[in-house]
Amino acid sequence: MKVLYFAWLKTKTGVGEEELSPPAGVATVAQLLDWLEARSPGHGEALADRHAIRIAVNQEYARPGDPVKAGDEIALFPPVTGG
């Protein structure tokens, strides 16, 4: 799956985009965030406050219990501030 990071999540993780293959136990958004958090100290810092993060799966807003699978495009970003 492809994981995208925007705004300060990109700054803290140090990556804008990564192609990942999580283990079989990662089946929901919440499980994916737990797994991502352990990837690096930067990921750990970026994902520390889950309330500060919005998630999109295949460009649709998603919730912690929503499913994720191989081939999905997952995006992590802060609450939006356009307009």
Partner: peptide, 8 residues
């Protein structure tokens, strides 16, 4: 759009 469109 201020709360839905992904701009930062």
């Amino acid at each position: 759009l201020k709360t839905q469109a992904p701009f930062w």
